[in-house]
Design a protein around this nucleic acid. Structure first.
Length: 203
DNA sequence: GAGAAGATCTCCT
DNA sequence: GGAGATCTTCTCA
């Protein structure tokens, strides 16, 4: 599959909510010795800084979340619930915390390898959740703080053809504080969007 | 150092 | 629909 160059750092160096909307439809590329897996981003969530109680950066900088305060366009990967990794892309200018949680992708290449990483009943269930997609793509904490703007093991690029789609905004999922913010974005009618979240939509 | 919480998923009822 | 799994990180004493 022919791939475009990674998105430049200037793409990420903007308001987190703006970048979250723009990130939909882009391709998340994971390269390893086993091969390449490419997922189209169909759902994500924006997380801010001091003004967002749901964000890891709300209480200030810690060793864990320091990536969010660093350069835009880096990967921020953390472990939750003793079971799952979640992948974020950092945003805003250096020193301003912000990140976008990638919640679901549609696997467009490397399907066989993704299924090997995470056996699932159907292609739809392979990566329709934050924990699911990291498992399917083989992403762990070793991929934390990687530069997503260079063609390394992990990066994000534009698709070959820009498809048009409607972006739906809704409340974020799985959080208590700050859940009223409509900072979750997904492609309208896309079946790869995480299911139980889609049910909670109240536009 | 101990205890609690957590941006989830899967299995069981 | 509910609860357990399982471990990292943070807060507080």
């Amino acid at each position: 599959m022919k791939l475009a160059a990674p998105l430049p750092r200037s793409f990420y160096e903007r308001n987190t909510v703006v970048v979250a909307r723009k990130l939909l439809g882009k391709l998340l590329v994971k390269r390893s010795d086993d091969g390449v897996i490419i997922g189209k981003i169909v759902e994500d969530e924006a997380y801010g800084g001091r003004d967002d109680p749901a964000s890891h950066a709300y209480r200030g900088e810690t060793p864990r979340n320091k990536v969010m305060f660093g350069k835009p366009g880096l990967s921020y990967i953390y472990f939750v619930y003793g079971n799952h990794y979640c992948i974020n892309a950092t945003t805003e200018r250096e020193g301003v915390p912000g990140a976008i949680l990638i919640r679901a992708v549609e696997i467009v290449d490397g399907l066989q390898l993704a299924r090997k990483n995470r056996p699932a009943k159907s292609v739809v269930e392979l990566a329709n959740g934050p924990g699911k997609l990291t498992k399917a793509l083989g992403i762990t904490k070793v991929h934390n703080e990687l530069d997503l703007t260079t063609s390394t093991g992990l990066f994000i690029c534009k698709p070959e053809r820009d498809a048009s789609f409607e972006v739906i905004a809704s409340k974020r999922i799985g959080i208590k504080a700050g859940s009223e913010k409509p900072w979750r974005f997904y492609m309208e009618g896309n079946k790869f969007v995480s299911r139980y979240g889609a049910k909670r939509d109240t536009p």
